[in-house]
Amino acid sequence: MTTFRIKRFNPEKQADPYWEDIEYDIPPGATLLDCLNDIKWTRDGTLSYRMSCRSAICGSCGMKANGHALLACQRQAEHLLKDGRDTITIEPMGNMPVIKDLVVDMGEFWEKVNQVKPYLKEKEKPPEKERRQSPEQFKLIDDASTCIMCGCCYSDCNTLEVDKNFLGPAALAKAQRFVQDSRDEGTGERVRELSEAGGIWDCTHCAECVERCPKPAQPMYRIKEIMSVALEEGVTNNNGARHALSFVKSIKHSGRLNENTLPVESMGYFNIKGLMELVPVGLRMLLKGKIPPIIHKNIDDVEDVRRIFRELGE
């Protein structure tokens, strides 16, 4: 017998969510969704969640099991019971308001997808026939186009937990699908917008979205691809781009990161406000002897690393 510990909430009846324990015998091979369906259909019809295709295609049944977002139809319930545990905790997805039980309000999620203008931008009139793409051109957008908008990445995104202004992994993965689409003519404009606050450079690369994504869309890698395009397009007047370029410069010079120049170069030499913000932590570290050596040492055989940079044209 397994305990399904489900977070229940009906705002019409309760002030706060509460945990309900349901004892349930998992049939062999049953998915988490199969179990929830059986519980709903035979025990408690008031249990609410979204579901449709049961085949990891529609993206409806996103929820958290044992603290992490997944598609309930894509995971066998028994696989959530390793190490002899007898309880599965089930909660609504995170970073979104709960409507009832496991149903969340995805309004903001969709709003952010819309914000990245998820459609082709063209300057000229559409051609008479379809726009052809080579297999290589399609490969660049293939992964992002597998996104089923389930919200699992958005649910577990670490940046979104603290900053609702962040566009989030799904919208940014969708953005990559257009930034690198050979038929799109708005690349420069797109990467400029995506480099603003709330965009690509607010991603911590924690890969929580990669882990939760049920498809090859894997947003963090798509976000990194947009970053590359932004640097190629010369959209570098922001802390994120300056930070990346400062790293590259420092490794090219000495083989290692120069921690003294990185913060200053990331902020920008003329960003007085940003530079002032570095003062308290800098002073604090100075007093404790934590400031990196002022004379920045090269790694041994740094010449070989410089040669690699030269050979690759960097």
Binding site: L231, A244, L245, F247, V248, D304, V305, L312
Partner: peptide, 24 residues
Amino acid sequence: SAACCGAGVTQEKSALLTDTVNAR
């Protein structure tokens, strides 16, 4: 003589560069 791992930010400039430096 090992160089910086790239900290997850130098790939944005060049993935091949980062991977080559790490392969070294």
